[in-house]
């Protein structure tokens, strides 16, 4: 049993039209996802825009209500908690956003920003809170005296993200969602933030859910990876298995598109597969396997059958008709035939 469990989570947004807000359709942002994150581990959600990874994370934190399905934290279902009980759980689940320039209120000082969660949950006396803010700043390696009274805009991107992390740590959480935590930062700063996040995880026994589109980064921070496409998990495996032996055609294509900086890396990625077209809108998900219109390995039946996640190796699952025993599972050889560069 993981610390965080998602079962058959669905999130649909209605599309309304006109003055009467007539319902004309729905955006299937998340369409039946199961996840389990072990305590102290890092799970990475990987996918392109429109894959639903961000929505899923918000549903898990209950920043958005689920359309159906269950999310539990530490064995307790939180999808149905009332506001009061939710407040208590919220202390233990935090989020760090992508862009620290917009996740910190520009009109508040650093000490006020970090003190905010303590004030909201009425923790400690003013003196204790002040000491705590100092401690938190030290913990994210910012000298507290220099930074306490500054405004976010006078900080560099990396320093702002450290402040956002300090705020997330204020209530001693057990689980933190990191939503593209370094994609707004330069690589040399990214490396420092990742080092910090790893150290914090080790020292405090934190559990992370990382949302990222950067596969090279994910390779270095995650224990388990779930690849999403149009609201569904198409493949999930431990890092080594996913990068070493990707099964789903979409995963293979994604890996092949990674821009690399060395020949050793180029040798690790699959032969170049250029996908045609772009990810369709989640408001009009293709029939059958949602990936089939872009898939270079599609066969008869892909447009009709919605594949389930099936076991393709130890702790390795993929949802593709090629592995589905019900369809003979012919297997995938050499990365496909058409659409190759």
């Amino acid at each position: 049993m993981g610390l965080v469990e998602a079962e058959a989570v669905v999130k649909h947004f209605p599309i309304t039209k006109g003055f009467l807000r007539r319902r004309v359709g729905e955006v299937k942002a998340v369409d039946g996802v199961n996840l389990s994150i072990k305590e102290g581990a890092t799970l990475a959600l990987v996918g392109e825009s429109g894959s639903g990874k961000t929505t899923l994370a918000r549903v898990i934190l209950r920043l958005l209500p689920a359309t159906s399905g269950r999310v539990s934290f530490d064995g307790r279902e939180i999808t149905t908690l009332d506001d009061g009980a939710l407040r208590a759980v919220r202390q233990k689940m935090q989020i760090v956003f992508q862009n620290p320039a917009s996740s910190l209120n520009p009109r508040r000082r650093i000490n006020e920003i970090i003190e905010e969660p303590l004030l909201i949950h009425r923790v400690g006396t003013p003196g204790e809170r002040r000491r705590r803010v100092g401690e938190l700043l030290e913990r994210v390696e910012l000298p507290s005296q220099d930074f306490m009274f500054r405004y976010p805009h006078s900080l560099s991107g990396g320093q702002r993200q450290r402040v956002a992390i300090a705020r997330a740590l204020a209530l001693d959480p057990r689980f933190i969602v990191l939503d593209e935590p370094t994609s707004a930062l330069d690589v040399s700063v990214q490396a420092k933030i990742i080092t910090l996040l790893r150290r914090l995880q080790r020292d405090m026994g934190l559990t992370y859910l990382v949302i990222s589109h950067d596969l090279s980064l994910v390779r270095n921070v995650a224990d388990v990876i779930a690849v999403m496409y149009l609201g569904r998990v198409v493949e999930t495996a431990a890092v080594a298995a996913l990068f070493g032996d990707p099964k789903h055609p979409y995963t293979r294509a994604l890996l092949s598109a990674i821009p690399t900086v060395s020949d050793e890396e180029s040798a690790l990625i699959p032969e170049k597969i250029t996908l045609g077209g772009e990810i369709p809108s989640p408001a009009s998900v293709p029939s059958g396997c949602a990936f089939h219109p872009r898939c270079y390995a599609r066969i008869e039946g892909c447009d009709r059958v919605t594949p389930e996640l099936v076991r393709v190796g130890p702790d390795h699952h993929a949802s593709c008709i090629l592995y589905d025993p019900a369809h003979g599972a012919p297997g995938l050889h050499g990365g496909g035939s058409s659409g190759m560069d």
């Binding site: 690589v187 040399s188 700063v189 990214q190 490396a191 420092k192 990742i194 080092t195 950067d214 596969l215 090279s216 980064l217 390779r219 270095n220 990068f243 990674i258 690399t260 900086v261 060395s262 050793e264 890396e265 690790l268 990625i269």
Partner: peptide, 17 residues
């Protein structure tokens, strides 16, 4: 320093500058 900071598919990532 810049190249070393880039996360690699080989599973190595520097500490930044």
């Amino acid at each position: 320093g810049l190249l070393a900071a880039v996360p690699r598919l080989t599973g190595t990532m520097g500490e930044g500058i």
